[in-house]
Design a protein around this nucleic acid. Structure first.
Lengths: 204, 204
DNA sequence: CTCGTAAAGTTAGTGCCACTAACATATGTT
DNA sequence: AACATATGTTAGTGGCACTAACTTTACGAG
């Protein structure tokens, strides 16, 4: 349980936790109306402060959005750790579990997921963001190598991990863009993730 | 050779081909500065008309952007047709060629590619856009079925086509987001596309 | 040919937004 | 207790999306 960020209008001049609350307000709004429809002003109103207040915490709108993205990546990473915890080590099940978390995150928070990838090109300049991304990919690479029975990540593991990543990444986007419904494909997600995991991890 | 859309300031009051020229101007600007940085005003200036002129041709900014997306999808579809033309029918080579076109399009016009997928949720309401998307997917499904030696598309073909699509879609996004460079993965794109094609199309 | 209508431009204006500057209040260090 | 600093405020500025009302041109019917 983390400290509740309360949407309550404050009674004191100072806010106490505006930064976190702005991120939360922005997260909600972005999820409601899409990243391009979000206005900093509206986030301010939701947090109960003046429209200029955010700029004491964030250089500009982009930095605020990147903070939301970062927080999303943290949650995604944590969810991955949680998911593989109870599963047997060095098993394919761990691989598909990681994929499932990835896709489910995208589906439950599509707008934040979009934010996490490439909306502003400044993403690449944000060290924290890049680092969290690498952490996640390292996790996958490690599991892929483990699945092969190795403790060190070789080039083949990197290639496989990247293929898996590409796949779930694309799958996530197609799903949140509604392409699945459009194409009228009935899809068993779990089966598909297992199938792909097997195919990519197979030796020849 | 199509008629050159000339950026020339016109001498007549009427423009003649403003709609097409606005799309082209927007395409350029979007590619230069990113979809979120684009302003209709700037596109107007580039096309040499007043800032209100676009609204005679497009209901709003979103419709203009969707027109750019549509035009991108047309070019992508055409490139696919061109690519498989000379290749032997019913061959895996055609499958990887389709993937190569997909990824190369994303790399050569990343912003338009982004526009083609999910920036505004109104995409799903745009019939022309949806239709073009289905055409492209039908093309892939047809090739997948042909590769299996069948003239009719079965469920397995749909599943395989969707897996391939997910893969190249994700790969495209990861590449244009610079994740490849970040991860310092040296990558032979052609080899990877062939590899994936083989793995997904394999029987068991 | 010409006359009327509609298509396709224009200018002028509205309201929202991102961001800044100058000022106000709390916090916490010495 | 006093000052520096962090964190708020109000009051702008300029840009943008979009609209309304007007103007010019193209075009079809008689």
């Amino acid at each position: 349980m983390k400290k509740q960020t309360e949407p309550t209008p404050r009674e004191s001049y100072h806010h106490g936790d505006l930064r976190a609350q702005l991120i939360e307000a922005t997260r909600q709004l972005v999820e409601e109306k899409g990243p391009d429809q979000l206005s900093v002003s509206e986030a301010s109103r939701l947090a109960g402060v003046s429209t200029a207040a955010p700029y004491k915490h964030f250089k500009d709108k982009g930095e605020l959005l990147r903070a939301v993205a970062f927080e999303g990546m943290q949650r995604q990473y944590a969810a991955m750790i949680d998911a593989i915890g109870p599963l047997p080590e060095r098993s394919l099940a761990r691989i598909s579990a990681l994929g499932r978390v990835y896709v489910n995150f995208a589906r439950s928070e599509p707008a934040v997921f979009r934010l996490m990838f490439g909306l502003s090109k400044d993403h690449a300049d944000d060290d924290a963001l890049v680092q969290k991304g690498e952490d996640t990919f390292d996790l996958v690479k490690g599991e892929v190598a483990a699945c092969r029975g190795s403790d060190v990540v070789e080039e083949i593991d990197e290639r496989r991990a990247f293929q898996l990543w590409s796949f779930v990444h694309g799958l996530s986007f197609l799903m949140i863009d509604g392409k699945l419904e459009q194409m009228e494909l009935p899809l068993d997600l779990d089966a598909m993730l297992d199938d792909i995991g097997r195919r990519v991890m197979k030796d020849p």
